Simulated assay, not measured.
Amino acid sequence: MKQLAILSIARRRRLLNDEVLTALAESSWEILDISGSDVTDVGLATVANVCSNLRAVDISRCEKITNAGVSKIVSHCLSLEILRCGGCPRSEFTARRCLNLLKPKLNTLEEDSWEELDTLDIGGGAESLRWLVWPKIDDNSKETLAAECPRVTINPQPSLYDLSGSKVPVEALASVPLDHSIVEDVDPKTWAVSAAPRRPVAPSNPNDPPEIPIAERFRLAYVEREARLAPKRAKRERQQRRRAERDYMMNDIDARSIALASQASRNLRKS
């Protein structure tokens, strides 16, 4: 979760690229929001190999990602349910080029009996995809997907239900950033970009220590922030615990009776 938080902050500060992404990637990730970043097909392919459990991916407004990168995500992340795309001319073009990747396919079967077939032998394409967030989808693409991918819901709304009766996941709502839950407790000042003018960069000295990679700087900043906020969180948890105990004592008759009896007993002993 910490790595994802660092990734989300880097994206918001417009510092997310292949180097940062590949340095932070973890196999436990289930969501990936690289929208509006400088990530390329190379970085996306690397993440597809590492994070094979991804179920929601946002590549909208990514000008350096093509259908080749999306193909890696589709082929390696077999649990992919939600895909966000479009948002800029290049990303719109990539989304249209990816239509064939989303269509179900029947592979060439060479086994002698059905018992010997594996699920992967029967079908291909984005078999698990159920939600496609593409706000400016063109009519032709929409008709194609509706005809050939009826299992995929395009631009779902909060009140929409699919055929199985399951509610639309919040990750499939265009109005909510995909990585919102990752940074909802993080102060927005963390990713605020200073408007101060840049100072001229002095020539590097070969005797100077090597510059810390940007991913490591983000990690250190996150660790420092966690250490700084830990006392405040502990205090807040104690206050919440005391408040809960007080509410319990006020609302529970038995607990209130015991408390009153204990107080009366102390008063009698003092007298």
Score class of each variant (00 low, 15 high):
Tyr248Ala: 09
Gln263Glu: 15
Glu26Phe: 00
Glu30Ile: 03
Pro209Asp: 11
Ile122Gly: 08
Asp252Glu: 05
Leu54Ile: 06
Thr119Phe: 00
Leu4Phe: 01
Asp252Ala: 00
Ser257Gln: 11
Asp41Arg: 01
Leu160Phe: 08
Glu143Asp: 02
Leu117Pro: 03
Arg84Val: 08
Asp252His: 05
Glu211Lys: 08
Asp179Arg: 01
Ser141Ala: 15
Leu101Val: 07
Asn155Met: 04
Ser35Arg: 04
Ile34Ala: 02
Val20Ala: 04
Met250Ala: 09
Val50Gly: 08
Leu99Tyr: 11
Ile154Pro: 07
Asp58Gln: 02
Val168Asn: 11
Ser204Ala: 14
Glu116Gly: 01
Leu15Cys: 09
Pro158Leu: 02
Gln157Val: 03
Ser262Asp: 15
Glu26Trp: 01
Thr40Asp: 06
Ile82Leu: 04
Arg199Cys: 04
Arg228Tyr: 12
Cys149Ser: 10
Pro104Thr: 04
Ser60Met: 13
Ile154Asp: 10
Glu30Ala: 03
Ala95Pro: 08
Glu237Arg: 11
Asn267Glu: 12
Val193Lys: 12
Arg97Ile: 10
Glu116Arg: 03
Asp247His: 09
Pro104Ser: 03
Glu245Leu: 10
Ala5Gly: 02
Asp38Glu: 14
Leu99Ala: 12
Glu81Ser: 05
Ser166Arg: 14
Lys270Asn: 15
Glu143Trp: 01
Pro158Tyr: 08
Cys62Tyr: 02
Lys2Ala: 11
Leu83Lys: 11
Val70Leu: 15
Thr66Pro: 04
Ser27Val: 14
Pro203Ser: 07
Arg97Asp: 15
Ala259His: 14
Thr94Phe: 05
Glu127Phe: 15
Tyr222Gly: 00
Arg243Gly: 15
Leu101Phe: 11
Tyr248Val: 01
Ser194Phe: 10
Gly36Ser: 07
Lys235Ile: 13
Ala45His: 06
Ala264Val: 08
Asp179Thr: 02
Arg11Phe: 03
Ser257Cys: 11
Ser37Gly: 08
Glu184Tyr: 00
Asn251Trp: 01
Glu184Asp: 06
Arg238Leu: 10
Ile253Thr: 04
Arg217Tyr: 00
Glu111Pro: 01
Ala234Tyr: 03
Lys136Ala: 07
Leu44Ile: 02
Ala261Phe: 06
Pro213Ser: 11
Thr22Ala: 06
Leu106Lys: 12
Lys103Glu: 15
Arg84Trp: 14
Leu163Gly: 08
Asn53Pro: 05
Glu245Ala: 10
Ser159Val: 09
Thr66Phe: 04
Asn107Gln: 14
Asn49Cys: 10
Thr46Val: 10
Ser71Gly: 12
Val170Gln: 13
Ile182Ala: 01
Val50Tyr: 02
Arg266Asn: 09
Leu16Ser: 01
Gly36Ile: 06
Ala126Met: 05
Arg151Thr: 09
Asp112Phe: 09
Gln3Cys: 02
Leu54Phe: 10
Arg96Asp: 09
Ala174Arg: 08
Ser27Gly: 09
Arg13Cys: 02
Ala23His: 06
Asn155Arg: 04
Val42Asp: 06
Ser79Phe: 14
Ala259Lys: 13
Pro89Gly: 04
Ala23Phe: 01
Lys103Arg: 15
Leu44His: 05
Arg198Ser: 13
Val47Ile: 11
